[in-house]
Design a protein around this nucleic acid. Structure first.
Lengths: 201, 201
DNA sequence: GGAACCTCTGAATGATGGTTCACTTCTTTC
DNA sequence: GAAAGAAGTGAACCATCATTCAGAGGTTCC
């Protein structure tokens, strides 16, 4: 009966874990999953490589946590807009817009979430989150179809197409003029997305 | 001067190299890049691991060759249709259709080409081929815009969106009913693609 | 047949990077 | 202050493969 974690100690440990996740996220956004070795991440957090294993059972577990946190934020933001009030077409437009702006603001993280090569565990997580994006888009499209704002269509397929289209445009370098100007890019992307769903021009 | 490769010997070596590439492609389509170790590929081709290095300077070089061959076939087929005769909207429809059918017929290879985690050299190759798909689509879209079949738009962005949309729909498992029926899936996908470009319904 | 040169083999080598662990350092409790 | 136990360290360890290489087995040409 000589040692019990005091509340302050527990908080300190939780903060250390949190700090590790945040630093790992930065490293991943900076250099991608492949380059984010345990040593690199530990260095960034100012701890020894071995100490990572105080907080996570494996590198995979840490990577999954990093992915989940970041991806969940995007799902939440997108969900707030897509499930909000108003005309489905308008919500779709605003959803694409907000998603695109966030991705452009933090391109490294967007790339890591959407496309960067990653270990299988992260790949599985990515798949799960893609399904969630798709479900959010599909719901709006179904609503729009029901309200006669969009033509009849398989909402799941359109939603998948939207997910892919948005990701591709945001993540890969374009040589077009719009690539220089974020506003223009976002405007073109929302226009494509609305056409994709069949919204009246 | 006691040894010069006889034509038959040269042919035999070329055939061996060819056979290796074909077998490697099958392995990759089957199990993905990550699992396609030099040993696995050599086993599939019925040769020793070391013999791979008779034909390729590194595993990367072999992987790049495998990717290029397969991707080039798709670019050729798509290019034939998109650059053919006729109405731009119709060519776009047929292009998406043929691309989709081929991907669905050889799903493993399509996944390997479009999305499967791969080493950096293959990733770079993939990027280059994506640009080529994009260029093909962009040309048709520009034509369609010029011919007033599509509304004004940044063709590069629409083309990127198309590439992403098509890839996403074909490569990731869908839970919708259309996923069961290839014809239905292709029909929905071409419809989305045409809407994406803004073709009149 | 045999000298010269090649292809093929597969076990040994080497690089990379996650994981472990003996040890040090810090916290708690008495 | 000292015992008990936890957190933190970082060098050693280990698994995984790509790559090499010394030897075996062919092929060419005189």
């Amino acid at each position: 009966m000589a040692y019990r974690k005091t509340p302050a100690e527990i908080r300190r440990l939780e903060a250390a874990r949190e700090h590790l996740v945040v630093c790992a996220t930065e490293v991943v956004a900076d250099v991608g999953w492949a380059q984010a070795s345990v040593t690199a991440v530990a260095d960034a957090a100012g701890i020894a490589a071995g100490s990572v294993y105080q907080h996570f059972s494996s590198k995979s577990a840490l990577a999954v946590e990093v992915f989940r946190r970041a991806a969940q934020r995007e799902v939440d933001v997108l969900g707030d807009v897509l499930e909000g009030e108003g005309d489905p077409a308008d919500r779709l437009r605003r959803g694409v817009e907000v998603f695109a702006r966030r991705a452009l603001e933090n391109h490294g993280l967007a790339y890591a979430l959407l496309a960067a090569p990653a270990e299988p565990a992260v790949g599985a997580e990515r798949l799960a989150f893609r399904r969630r994006y798709r479900a959010l888009f599909a719901a709006v499209i179904d609503e729009g179809v029901a309200a006669d704002r969009f033509p009849g269509q398989d909402a799941e397929i359109t939603a998948a197409a939207l997910t892919g289209a948005i990701g591709e445009v945001l993540v890969y370098p374009l040589s077009t003029s719009a690539a220089q100007d974020a506003d223009l890019l976002v405007a073109e992307l929302t226009a494509v997305a609305l056409r994709c769903a069949g919204a009246a021009p």
